[in-house]
């Protein structure tokens, strides 16, 4: 049970920290761009809160749902919300990039990968997921179209099994 409490506490802490961070930003105490210095890094996309806003920030109009994506070893239930393996393979022809979004994180976009010709449209990474959330794989094709597939990843307090 202790884990449940600790887990809940961690969750609450991260939740309140988010709020605090949000307040600082709102009050102008932290300028988002101050933290985001790297040139060529799409700060608008990484500051977006939703799938639609990320698509817009990346220059698209909207994303079409697709089943032509496999999730590989992406878990249904996370062993550790701080380290959730995400494995995405696109079967959509001319896939140029794959972005990974966590719907309920403070900012949705976690990572975006671009595949030059000769590199397969498959990638593995590991991301933080604060609470049970949909994870989106957002695919951009060479002709600028966006497709999206969604997988629910549960973050649980654990214990009590067996």
């Amino acid at each position: 049970m202790e884990e449940m409490i600790a887990g809940r506490r961690r969750f609450l802490q991260s939740g309140s920290a988010t709020t605090v961070f949000g307040l600082f930003v709102a009050a102008g105490l932290i300028r988002p761009e101050a933290a985001f210095a790297q040139a060529g890094w799409n700060k608008d996309a990484f500051a977006s809160k939703s799938l639609n806003d990320v698509v817009k920030a990346l220059g698209g109009a909207g994303a079409t749902p697709t089943n032509d994506i496999s999730w590989g070893a992406t878990p249904e239930i996370a062993e550790n919300g701080a380290v959730v393996p995400i494995n995405v393979t696109s079967r959509i022809p001319n896939t140029q990039s794959i972005a990974v979004l966590v719907e309920k994180n403070p900012n949705a976009l976690a990572a975006k990968f671009d595949f030059p010709a000769g590199t397969d449209p498959t990638v593995s990474t590991r991301v933080k997921i604060g609470q049970s959330s949909n994870v989106h794989a957002l695919i951009k094709t060479a002709d600028g179209k966006y497709f999206v597939a969604t997988r629910e990843v549960k973050v649980t307090i654990g214990g009590c099994g067996g």
Partner: peptide, 25 residues
């Protein structure tokens, strides 16, 4: 093996192992 061992039981027993269903594998 049981896919959710590090969730249902303490992860500290197997900190360097990851489980899961892995049906593609």
């Amino acid at each position: 093996a049981f896919p959710y061992m590090p969730i249902a039981n303490p992860r500290y027993f197997v900190p360097e192992w990851s489980f899961g269903i892995r049906d593609e594998n």
